[in-house]
Nucleic acid binder design. Structure first.
Lengths: 169, 169
DNA sequence: TCAATATAGTAGGACATCCGACTATCTGAT
DNA sequence: ATCAGATAGTCGGATGTCCTACTATATTGA
């Protein structure tokens, strides 16, 4: 006799929402579900992206740095600018650039006019890797992000306001 | 004369989308924007949540474990179940429970019938903290998650399908 | 009954993120 | 011109997540 298919539990977030209401927290239940959904969706998306990037020996954090440089006019930016654009702490930039530099994908250069600052410049290898990794990501994740085309648009619109309210732009 | 307000840059994700199209990656631009928006929105939400939880000396990861126990019938669950419900790796559960136990919020107990398994049980202190932290989160974050009520619903619906496709339920 | 396989947890390591502290350098106000 | 305050980066530490072992215990099938 075949083992009975393991019955998948109900949507855990819907379940949590129900419990929130039961506990008298109904006015916060929707918000809890929204935030929790965001956390889980992020985890899913990050996992897919990291899987595609793994063969290139870069993480998404480092890929983002590479692309920021790739898309910049001079293929070079100050550390500080990288942190601001990516909305991460300076020390995270230091960490990412350390690893990218060790892999030969970027180099640190002196800033011509501000001796406090450090410019990060994409190397030829970094440029090549940025292009190949982007091709892979575009094909394997971004072209089909796991949402319908209309949902993609809706999601971006909803989150744009959240980002604006948080001061991103 | 007041220092001129620092001109906020344009939406960085819209900017990235434009560059994607320029580089001939138009078919992946929307997906890139969606995934990137998700990453940033997660960062914003997590930051707000952690700020509220900090006074309670728990992180969101540990709070989730506490609430899972709090909402369970016996206020106790096997480690493995916690990992499955929260969709995180076993070792992450070990880590969170280690810290919760050190703080006196949970205790590990022997499983009555399976000697491989360990039950995690909420202590009285853990229960009290779960309630106080939830009250704070409900009031300060979930009741006003930074989105309109309709956006909240839309977001949850869009992400539900993404989670279902990923095999969450 | 017993060996092969599966499952529960833990240990150690790699990464990423944030925070606070510290150095070097730049800017602006007196 | 100087000195106080702001800014750029780095360092060390705490935390979370995942991965790969490795141990102990259950389950299953011959």
């Amino acid at each position: 006799m075949p083992k009975p298919e393991p019955r998948l539990a109900a949507d855990p977030i819907a379940e949590a929402h129900r419990q929130w209401v039961e506990h008298g927290w109904g006015d916060a239940a929707d918000g809890m579900a929204a935030i929790t959904s965001l956390m889980r969706a992020h985890q899913i998306a990050l996992s897919r992206v990291e899987a595609v990037l793994r063969p290139f020996d870069v993480t998404f954090a480092r890929y983002e740095v590479l692309m920021l440089l790739y898309l910049s006019k001079r293929r070079s930016l100050p550390m500080r600018t990288i942190g601001s654009r990516l909305q991460v702490h300076q020390t995270s930039v230091t960490n990412a650039v350390d690893r990218l530099e060790a892999a030969g994908l970027v180099v640190r250069r002196a800033h011509p006019t501000d001796r406090r600052a450090t410019l990060v410049e994409l190397t030829r290898a970094g440029l090549a890797l940025a292009e190949r990794a982007t091709a892979a990501l575009n094909e394997q994740v971004f072209a089909d992000p796991g949402l319908s085309a209309s949902s993609v648009g809706t999601l971006v619109n909803v989150l744009r306001r959240m980002r604006r309210d948080a001061g991103d732009f």
